[in-house]
Amino acid sequence: MTNPLRTAGQFVVILALFMAVAAFSNWPVYRQNPQGSAVVMLTFVHGADRQAECRRLTPAEIAKLPPNMRRVQECPRGRRSLEVELDIGGKTVYRASLPPSGIAGDGPSKVYERFVWPAGEYDIAVRMRDSPRREGFDYMRSEHVKLAPDQLLVIDFNPQGREFVFR
């Protein structure tokens, strides 16, 4: 083989390898969700009520405290767990008790859940309890939603308005 031919052969081999790498850089196509599906995402960050109410200390208890740390009431740091439920099309797809975050359990609870659902019309309901009550929920929202293919429906909680938001 002459030198130019040999060099051409070398170039062709390198080119073929690089073409394979370039092809692999885009192909095969990855399908994350089934065709014609949408995603409902339930995600919010919210701190539930404290585990116990603040309690007024007795004069004797206050006197026991070091002078520089005396206070009139004691408030436990820990928060309750959030109770959350989500229904799609009348079926409960998510029910969880979300513990507070943080080492002392005094941070907000958080949820980030994704539900892949076939496109179509659904009644979607979300409920949350953040108080000491044992029955029922403190916040609820129900919507009739038309889910388009590839749509991402986010269900969030607005802490200022204290209500669920569908967007």
Binding site: L15, M19, A22, P28, Y30, R31, Q32, A38, P149, L152
Partner: peptide
């Protein structure tokens, strides 16, 4: 290779949508 198969974007982000099909860099 760059001339043969230029690297291109896959469309602008639409945060209200999920992309079901993607040309992934494997």
């Amino acid at each position: 290779v760059s001339l043969w198969k230029p690297a291109v974007s896959q469309g602008h982000v639409d945060m209200a949508k999920v992309s079901t099909e993607l040309g992934l860099d494997w």
